[in-house]
Amino acid sequence: MCNQSVGLIARGIEASGISTVCVSFRKEITRLSRPPRILSVNFSAGKPLGNPGDGNMQRKIIEAGFSLLQNTTTDMTILDLPYKSSKFRFL
């Protein structure tokens, strides 16, 4: 459900004159609402930017978003990110 909501919220914010990029871990759902920029990730619910403590992964995803924001686009663009997170073990 959050993957639908994030796309719908992005639309409303974008329509207010703000450039948006939204992360999605279910792009087939997010794309139905056609937000202009989607970062598609392979992570599970609860960790859209990867495992806790993985700052490098967080930076890779954010920087991909920055790149997407600077592209000239006139319609929905989806960037599929290849990263995968290993099973996270809590100490």
């Binding site: 909501s5 719908l8 919220i9 409303g12 329509a15 207010s16 703000i18 992360v23 999605s24 619910a45």
Partner: peptide, 26 residues
Amino acid sequence: PLIKYSIKAGRHLKGLGVDVAFLTPT
């Protein structure tokens, strides 16, 4: 209602001078 609130949110952020929004689902 979410669509209405998202427009309200956009106006709110615009009023703060925001240029870019980064959104995350859970």
